[in-house]
Computed example of a mutant assay.
Amino acid sequence: MFTGPTLTPELSVSNIEKSLDFYINLLTFKVKYERKEDKFAMLILGGCEIMIEQVNGYWSTGELAYPYGRGINFQIMVEDVEVIYRRLKAHAYPIKYELTESWYRVDDKLYGQQEFLVMDPDGYLLRLAEDIGEKAV
């Protein structure tokens, strides 16, 4: 019986080593498992799981061109978004949208989060965010 998340994105990447360096050393993901012979890794961060696999033609539905994943962003909830943000800044990694506080209305409440946007080495847009509470509209 499958007991993992019910949606786990698998991202095609141009260079598995470069992507692993970004996700592990900058975003603090951990390797849950990998298949080096397939240039594949399952990564975890808190409750988030993501698969990355070097482009091999198997999953291709069309031509891949940078930036990959156009039209989608992946929100990754973390416990301390500022730590990751500072790590990226310390490594002079480009930030797409600087750290900010945002409030989103859901019915009669506002839900807040600190968040920033960054593109991974292949151009996938990632929104790293931390919950900062709720308030009435």
Results as ranks from 00 to 15, higher is better:
residue 1 M to T: 14
residue 8 T to Q: 02
residue 10 E to I: 10
residue 10 E to Q: 09
residue 12 S to C: 09
residue 13 V to K: 05
residue 14 S to P: 04
residue 15 N to Q: 07
residue 16 I to D: 09
residue 17 E to I: 08
residue 21 D to A: 10
residue 23 Y to G: 09
residue 25 N to V: 04
residue 28 T to L: 10
residue 29 F to C: 10
residue 29 F to Q: 08
residue 29 F to V: 13
residue 32 K to H: 02
residue 32 K to V: 12
residue 33 Y to R: 08
residue 34 E to P: 03
residue 35 R to G: 05
residue 35 R to A: 15
residue 37 E to N: 07
residue 39 K to C: 12
residue 43 L to D: 12
residue 45 L to Y: 01
residue 45 L to E: 09
residue 47 G to D: 15
residue 47 G to W: 04
residue 48 C to K: 01
residue 48 C to L: 11
residue 49 E to W: 02
residue 49 E to K: 09
residue 51 M to C: 12
residue 56 N to Q: 04
residue 60 S to F: 07
residue 61 T to I: 15
residue 61 T to K: 10
residue 62 G to N: 12
residue 64 L to Q: 10
residue 64 L to K: 10
residue 67 P to A: 11
residue 68 Y to S: 02
residue 69 G to H: 00
residue 70 R to N: 10
residue 73 N to T: 05
residue 74 F to V: 13
residue 75 Q to M: 15
residue 77 M to A: 15
residue 78 V to S: 07
residue 83 V to Y: 00
residue 85 Y to M: 09
residue 86 R to P: 00
residue 88 L to G: 06
residue 94 P to S: 08
residue 96 K to V: 08
residue 97 Y to F: 11
residue 98 E to K: 01
residue 99 L to A: 06
residue 101 E to F: 01
residue 103 W to E: 11
residue 105 R to N: 10
residue 105 R to P: 12
residue 108 D to P: 05
residue 109 K to A: 14
residue 113 Q to L: 07
residue 115 E to V: 08
residue 116 F to E: 00
residue 117 L to K: 06
residue 117 L to V: 14
residue 118 V to M: 09
residue 119 M to Y: 02
residue 120 D to P: 08
residue 121 P to E: 11
residue 123 G to M: 10
residue 126 L to I: 15
residue 137 V to C: 13
residue 137 V to Q: 05
